[in-house]
Each structure stands twice: as structure tokens, then as C-alpha cells.
Design a protein around this nucleic acid. Structure first.
Length: 848
RNA sequence: GCCCGGGUGGUGAAAUGGCAGACACAGCGGACUUAAAAUCCGCAGACCUUAAACGGUCGUGCCGGUUCGAGUCCGGCCCCGGGCACCA
């Protein structure tokens, strides 16, 4: 076959000056893609292709796409397209986390019903998504505020109720005395009401629904050890959040109390119990409340303490309160040695952790030491490094290398062993036991709000609390309701909703008027994507088991605790119900950095918001999303600089100009092709091309430094650009040109899909560019035959020598020693050693 | 206080023990243009030396260590960002 190299030079193309206009190109291609709903749809699970589930966290439909979204979804989109090109059956869905407070705020402000406001926003955002060109399978769209989704929240609630994973308990909630209503935590701003900035929020006791997440505390914690596809940061944050702490409970009898009253403390240092000099109780401990009721002076002190704590909590200064306390006048007996210890009430003891009571061991605990010093309580040393070294400064908190002193029968024991033995002793004596406490609390899901999933239970005066029978689901949210200045749950003011009949006795009954936390919606939405239209179950188990676990989950680190712990919990519950087989929702998690501007997070109040619409209007979607990937590695914060977007736009323009210039001569059928064996320049371009493929392929496999992937494509394009004249003249053959340009188009596809598609077509190809096979790097073509080797003398660079890439140690040494500059540098000195690393460098170690 | 990140040119950054600053932004110089924009070409860490070139020295927050060789590994600090925080 004839080689194009020998052909006459190509004449300059008439279209030489064709301009890159994403404003024309992108909407045109989007219209084509929109017309094909199957384009981004996953194949049936029977397709036999390996599956890949890539998921980005679903947005709240505020109506405005922001740069954080663009960044998050550009990462996921690049990955989805890359995996399609690698032959995977890709599931890449999107939905709307559409219940929640903003819809209610908007309703009050604009007099628009929350449903209407939300659905309008969704429509608006779906348009914005399309404009950016994200590859979502919209046939699987999940909208959490619609009954076909939230009915399954209700179904899960009933399942939880059956399994005693949902329960009711009295609990504190935020209450604004000015609005006369309950506030969500998010509505409390620096301790004040969001609508009345001068009104301090109160705590009120209300009966609330909880999910028993603490039942899974150990599994949630232990699972983290094996989740090596999740960032350490997230795993650490979850570990701290769960906060498992192993220790012991010890029960002290109250002295001189006829009705055998006792106080139980939690301690992680039972080995220090011989050094206890008092007991400290939280001011809201039941026994303190009991004693305060009988002792006016104590009652006054306790009330003052509680008031102080409330103010501190409201102003977020709880941690800064100075430690103080008052003696109750009562004493307890240390069960280990019969010593009498005074009982105090102290403001630093938390009622919500452990038992709300601690034994104070000033010699071996920082806080107890501070407290005892302040009130002149005895400080008794009972732990020391060894029996001879007993004068180290206090408090002495080491326990790994320590022995007990002055501790009765346990004196001389190693502290850690003593912990075991003393706990057993307490257990045998019936005044204590080993125990584990957690910082993790059960998940309070009741919200006294309107725009959420109604909790499916009714209350009957005769029969009590009853679950709504499954066949009555969904309990629909009523539509036209007045949300302004509601006292308590808005649903409580809708008689047609509240009043119902008892499923048991048919008598009158009232519905629960609280709704569920919106985190319920986002705890399992990604399972619904696998079977979004199912009307008889939340999803089909076989289908979910095919797709799960999620191969790659991508989102902001701000969800490291709440969403990512709730959804792990939900997965375990669904597994135990028998719906799924996996115990964790996602194999790999990626948390991208924030988008910032001028060093600060983009926010309305700072006025530094950059709108994606504006960027896309000016530079196009491809440039906007490519900049989001190019400006920083995806896990780091990204400082948005518009001039950088302009730079990417210029780069894409260059790609467009070059490709469209040469494309007409490269279309199939235009010429007969055979691979170019000729020009050295062509070989050099092919070498760079294949090195670029290899680099990007490697990065997609784990490191995800898309910024350097894009940089390497820029290097390639710079080289192509520098060879333009050689391509014009035909020195670089059309065969090579065709390989260069079509491969360039393919490797651009994950990052700049519109441009890649346009150029793919320009090159005379049919079909969709991101369904073409990902190019394979040819090692032969990528190999360098001559490389530059730095030569160092005593670790300092002296020169760089050119050598055959295959040069071995001896050849490198010889070449280095033969170099003039090297010779001058080592003249008169003795060579001690030569370190030569093939392909890397030579280092001559000399002395004298 | 504890636990994670991070600290490199004017800026965003690159360099997975081997030539520090790839790629890009901003800047400067030039070509094209009546002019400007766009585009293209070139320069570009700091300092010293020089008419210029050549050349040299220093340089990745600070101090020390390991190594033929450290931005990278180890030890000790400092600063910035994030998370948790009287958690017994």
C-alpha cells in the first residue's frame, strides 16, 4: 500500500480559520444527546458486561447550580465516561434531595406552595445540568419529596418499628419563644432564632422519634477498619464521632441513706479508684434534682449552674466555662476500701455521657486535678511508673507503663492488669461491671416541620400508639396549608390530616404530626436508583444486589459524619431485613475539596459567588468543567480564577483549530492508510501521544490527578502545534496525523465531551465518542530511545549527558567520566564511589 | 487540648528517594495590524558576576537526622485550614 508520506503536500485548508464557538456547538450537540434517552442509560443487568456504579451525592434543589456542584459532577462525569470507554456497564444516576426547610422558608416569603417551588427548581436545575453536559441516566431520576419515593421512607419506618429500631422518648428540642414554635438545629444561629436575631432559643422537652443507630455502633466502628477505599480523614472522623470508650461502671452506696440509694459512675480508670477523693455529678443528674428539691440552697446553686450552661450552650461557649461546683453535703462509700467520699455537683460533668456521674481522682486526671486544686480537695497518688519512683509531677496520667501504689490488695500490680482484676472484683461483689460507652447517640428523626415525610403512626385514646397498616401507605402530605407563624408542627393545624380512624378499634384517632429528618431520604436513595419505578417494594433485591456496592461515591467532605454514617447504618438495617447482601454502601469514597474564591468559601454574604451559567456563557461548558479539573487536584480546595478558565478556553480553541484544519484530509475513504514508519518527527509525536495515553490511564486507576492529566494533553497539543508545518508539508504523514488527532479526541472525551464529540464527527467518524474503546498505550511507540541523564558530583548537578535509553550501569559511568565538565570538576580528587542508576542519574562521590 | 490535611516562584500548581518549579494564569519583549483585540513566537525562582554571554551561589515554613542523593523518609518545633472537644 502506498504511504502518504510520499504524497504531495496538502494544500492549505480553506477552513483554516474556523473558530471554536462552544455557544453554538454545545447546545447543538446537547439537543442531539437529549433526543436519545438511551444514550446514558445503563444496559440491562443481563448484558454480561462488568458493572460500574459511579455516584455523586444528590443536590438539594435550590434552583441554582453552584461551582461546588460543577466540580463534584465533573469528576463523576469524567469517571463515568472513562468507564464506558473501558467497556463497563455504567450506572450514573442523579436525583433530588428535595425535602427540607428552604422550601418552607420560600413558601412563607413568596407565598408559593413548597411542592410547586421545589418542582420548579428541579426543572430549572435539570436544564442547567444539561447545559453542562453531564451524563446522567434521567430515566432513573429520584425525587425524594414525591410520594412514590417517600412512601418507602414510611415503609422503612414501619419495618424499624417492628424490629424495635424505631422508638419514642422524651427529648430536648430548640424552641423559639417569639415564634412560638420548634426550630430545627439548622434554624438556630449562634443560639438565636433565625427569624428573631435577638431571641435566645430555649430547650424544651418533647416526645421525639428515634432510630436505634447505637445498636450498630460496634459494627459501624469495626467496619471502618476494612474500608480502605475511603479516605482516612473520613474514617477517623467517624471513629471519633462513634467514640467507643471501654471502661467500668462502679456503684457507690449513699452513706446514711435508709432506702439504699446508690450512685453509679463510669470510669476508664477503675485502677485509680483508691485515689478517688469525691464524686462529681452533673447538675441535671436525677439524684441531684431529687436532693435539690429538698434543699433550697442546693437547689438555687444547681439552677444557677443550669442557667449558666444554657447561656453558654446558646452562645457556643460551653467549652470555655470555668470548672466549678458545690458540695451536696452527702457522702458515698467507696466499695473498694470503705472510705467515705463527699458528693459534689459540678458543671463539667455531662449528663448525656456515661452515667452523668464520675469519681474524681485528682492525682491522675487533668480535670479532677484542676477541680481539686481549686477547692482544696485531697490529692492522693495511687499510680506511679514503679514502686521506687513515686514523686513525678501530678497529675500523672500514664497507664501503659505504670503500677499501683497504696491500693490495698492491688498495690504493685501493673495498671492495665489491675483494671481487669478490679473490674472482675467489682462484678463479683455486685457493685460494678465492665462496660462500654459511646459518644454516638440514637438518631432523633422527628421534625416539627411540614416539608418532610409524614411519620406513619396514629394515636388512639383507647388503643394507644399504632403503626399505620402497610396497605394504607403512603400517608400523603396535605397540599394547601398555611405555614406562617405556626405553633408547633404545621401538620397539627390541618384537621383533615390529623383526624383519622384507629386501625384497631375504628374509633377516632390522631395522626402523628411530626415529619422525618431529611437525612432519612438521603440514607437509601442510591438503592432506589437501581429500580426507581418499583411500586411494590423500595427496590428489587436481585437488581440492587447486582449493582451494589457503589464502586465510586463522590461528594463533599462536609457529609463525612451525618449522611455517610446514617447511610451506612441504613445499609446494615436493610441487610438485616434481607433486602440486600452488602454491609457497606460504597467500596470507594472520594471527597473533593471546596471551591473558593479569593481565599474564602463562595457565599452570598461575601459577594464572591461565581455563577456557572456566566462561565458557560462566556467560555462554554467544556472549558468551565475542564478548568474545575485542571486548576487543582480534585481532593484539594480550588481557588476559582476566571483567567484560568479563559486559558482553558484558549487551549480548547487551539485543539479545535488544529483538528478541524487537518480533519478534511483525514476522513476515512479519503486516502489509503498505512502506518508511517518514516519521519523521525512523526515518531516523536507518536511517542508523546502514547506516553500521554499511558499517563492518563494510570491516573484514572487511582490517583485521580486530573490536573496533571490535562497538563499532559496540553503538552501533547503544544507539540502537535509545533509540528504544524511538518504536517502541512506531509513530512509527518496523514497516517500519523490521523492517529494523533483521533486519539487526541478520544482522550479529551472524559474532560471536554462536547468538543470531543464535535471533533470525532469532523474526523469523519460515526457514533458517540465516549462509547468508543479507550485507546491503548503502545509501549513500543512510547519508549524513548535517547534520554538525558543528570551527572552529579557529591550530589550536586554538574551536567546532563545524552545517552541511549538502554545504557547500563557501566555505559553510564563511562559516559559520565568522559565528560569534560565532570573531568574539570573532579580533577585532582579521589573518586570514592560512583552511584549509577540506569534511566535516572549518575553521582560521583569524591574527596580531596 | 486531641485527630486529620497543608506550607514549594507574582498566582494556581508539578515532581510516588534521583535535573525543584512541568502545565497554566498574570507579567515582560517581539511578529502580525493604521491601531486595538485575537493569534503566533520568545523571556521569565532569587542573588552575585558580566557590556552581553559564559559562569557561580542560594533556594521547597524552622532545627536536626538517615542517605551517594531529601520538597519527598525519620525526630523535634512553628504557622495556616478542617474536624472533634470538660467524653471521665
Amino acid at each position: 500500500m502506498p504511504d502518504e508520506t510520499t504524497n504531495a503536500p496538502q494544500s492549505p485548508n480553506a477552513d483554516d480559520t474556523k473558530r471554536y464557538t462552544p455557544q453554538e456547538l454545545e447546545p447543538r450537540l446537547q439537543a442531539v444527546w437529549d433526543a436519545d434517552p438511551a444514550l446514558y442509560a445503563a444496559d440491562p443487568i443481563t448484558s454480561g458486561k462488568p458493572k460500574y456504579y459511579v455516584l455523586e451525592m444528590l443536590p438539594y434543589p435550590s434552583g441554582k447550580l453552584h461551582m461546588g456542584h460543577v466540580r463534584n459532577y465533573s469528576i463523576g462525569d469524567a469517571l463515568a465516561r472513562y468507564q464506558w470507554m473501558n467497556g463497563f456497564n455504567v450506572l450514573h444516576p442523579m436525583g433530588w434531595d428535595s425535602f427540607g426547610l428552604p422550601a418552607e422558608n420560600a413558601a412563607i416569603k413568596n407565598n408559593t406552595p413548597p411542592r410547586e417551588w421545589t418542582l420548579n427548581n428541579i426543572a430549572e436545575m435539570r436544564k442547567q445540568f444539561a447545559r453542562v453536559g453531564f451524563s446522567y441516566d434521567w430515566s432513573r431520576e429520584v425525587t425524594t419529596c414525591l410520594p412514590d419515593y417517600y412512601r418507602w421512607n414510611q415503609w422503612f419506618f414501619l419495618e424499624m418499628l417492628k424490629r424495635d429500631l424505631a422508638f419514642r422518648r422524651k427529648s430536648k428540642v430548640n424552641w423559639c419563644p417569639n415564634c412560638n414554635t420548634v426550630l430545627a438545629n439548622e434554624q438556630v444561629i449562634s443560639g438565636c432564632c433565625w427569624r428573631h436575631e435577638d431571641t435566645l432559643v430555649e430547650q424544651r422537652d418533647l416526645t421525639q422519634w428515634f432510630f436505634r443507630i447505637t445498636k450498630y455502633a460496634d459494627e459501624l466502628l469495626d467496619g471502618l477498619d476494612t474500608m480502605d477505599g475511603w479516605p482516612d480523614k473520613v474514617r477517623t472522623m467517624q471513629r471519633n464521632w462513634i467514640g467507643r470508650s471501654e471502661g467500668a461502671e462502679v456503684t457507690f452506696a449513699v452513706d446514711g441513706c435508709t432506702d439504699s440509694m446508690t450512685i453509679t459512675v463510669f470510669t476508664t480508670r477503675i485502677d485509680t479508684i483508691f485515689g478517688a477523693s469525691s464524686l462529681q455529678l452533673a447538675p441535671d443528674h436525677p439524684i441531684i434534682q431529687h436532693w435539690a428539691a429538698m434543699d433550697a440552697k442546693l437547689g438555687e446553686a444547681v439552677d444557677a449552674m443550669l442557667a449558666e450552661q444554657k447561656t453558654a450552650r446558646d452562645t457556643d461557649m460551653l467549652g470555655e466555662l470555668p470548672k466549678h461546683g458545690v458540695p451536696t453535703g452527702r457522702e458515698v462509700i467507696n466499695p473498694f476500701n470503705g472510705e467515705k467520699l463527699p458528693v459534689w455537683v459540678a458543671n463539667y460533668v455531662l449528663s448525656g455521657y456515661g452515667t452523668g456521674a464520675v469519681m474524681s481522682v485528682p492525682a491522675h486526671d487533668e480535670r479532677d486535678f484542676e477541680f481539686a486544686t481549686k477547692y482544696n480537695l485531697p490529692i492522693k497518688r495511687v499510680v506511679a511508673p514503679n514502686l521506687d519512683t513515686t514523686d513525678l509531677p501530678l497529675p500523672y496520667t500514664d497507664k501503659a507503663e505504670a503500677v499501683l501504689i497504696d491500693s490495698g490488695a492491688w498495690t504493685g500490680e501493673a495498671a492495665l492488669e489491675a483494671q481487669e482484676k478490679m473490674a472482675k472484683h467489682a462484678e463479683a461483689g455486685g457493685f460494678g461491671k465492665r462496660t462500654t460507652t459511646y459518644r454516638l447517640k440514637d438518631w432523633g428523626v422527628s421534625r416539627q416541620r411540614y416539608w418532610g415525610t409524614p411519620i406513619p403512626v396514629v394515636y388512639c385514646d383507647k388503643c394507644g400508639m399504632l403503626p399505620v397498616p402497610e396497605d394504607q401507605l403512603p400517608i400523603l402530605l396535605p397540599e394547601q396549608i398555611d405555614l406562617a407563624d405556626v405553633d408547633g408542627s404545621p401538620l397539627g393545624r390541618v384537621p383533615s390530616f390529623v383526624n383519622t380512624t384507629c386501625p384497631q378499634c375504628d374509633g377516632p384517632a390522631r395522626r402523628e404530626t411530626d415529619t422525618m429528618d431529611t437525612f432519612v431520604d438521603s440514607s437509601w436513595y442510591f438503592y432506589r436508583y437501581t429500580d426507581p419505578k418499583n411500586s411494590t417494594a423500595p427496590f428489587d433485591s436481585d437488581v440492587a444486589n447486582h449493582w451494589f456496592p457503589i464502586d465510586q461515591y463522590i461528594g463533599g467532605v462536609e457529609h463525612a459524619i451525618l449522611h455517610l454514617i446514617y447511610s451506612r447504618f441504613w445499609t446494615k438495617v436493610m441487610r438485616d431485613i434481607g433486602l440486600i447482601k452488602n454491609s457497606e454502601p460504597a467500596t470507594r469514597l472520594f471527597t473533593q475539596g471546596m471551591v473558593i474564591k479569593d481565599g474564602a468559601k463562595m457565599s452570598k454574604s461575601l459577594g464572591n459567588i461565581v455563577s456557572p451559567d456566566e462561565m458557560i456563557g462566556k467560555y462554554g461548558a467544556d472549558a468551565t468543567r475542564m478548568y474545575a479539573l485542571f486548576a487543582a487536584p480534585p481532593d484539594r480546595d480550588l481557588d476559582w480564577q476566571e483567567q484560568g478558565v479563559a486559558g482553558v478556553y484558549r487551549f480548547l480553541s487551539r485543539v479545535y483549530r488544529l483538528t478541524t484544519k487537518f480533519a478534511p484530509g483525514l476522513r476515512p475513504g479519503h486516502t489509503i492508510f498505512a502506518r508511517d514508519g518514516g519521519s523521525a518527527e512523526g515518531q516523536k509525536l507518536l511517542r508523546t501521544l502514547h506516553q500521554t495515553i499511558a499517563k492518563i490511564t494510570l491516573d484514572f486507576s487511582g490517583r485521580w490527578h486530573f490536573n496533571t492529566c490535562i497538563a499532559s494533553i496540553m503538552i501533547l497539543v503544544n507539540e502537535i502545534s509545533a509540528s504544524e508545518a511538518l504536517m502541512d508539508s506531509g513530512v509527518i504523514s496523514r497516517v500519523t496525523q490521523r492517529e494523533i488527532f483521533s486519539t487526541l479526541t478520544l482522550i479529551l472525551a472524559p474532560f471536554a465531551p462536547f468538543l470531543a464529540q464535535e471533533l470525532w464527527t469532523e474526523l469523519g467518524n460515526d457514533g458517540v465518542v465516549f462509547r468508543q474503546p479507550w485507546p491503548q498505550a503502545d509501549e513500543e511507540l512510547a519508549r524513548e530511545d535517547e534520554i538525558e541523564i543528570p551527572v552529579q558530583v557529591n550530589g550536586k548537578l554538574v551536567t546532563v549527558i545524552k545517552l541511549d535509553a538502554a545504557a547500563d550501569v557501566e555505559a553510564i559511568k563511562a559516559a559520565a567520566l568522559a565528560d569534560e565538565k565532570v573531568a574539570a570538576r573532579i580533577a585532582g580528587k579521589q573518586i570514592v564511589k560512583i552511584v549509577a542508576v540506569p534511566g535516572k542519574l549518575v553521582n560521583l562521590v569524591v574527596k580531596g
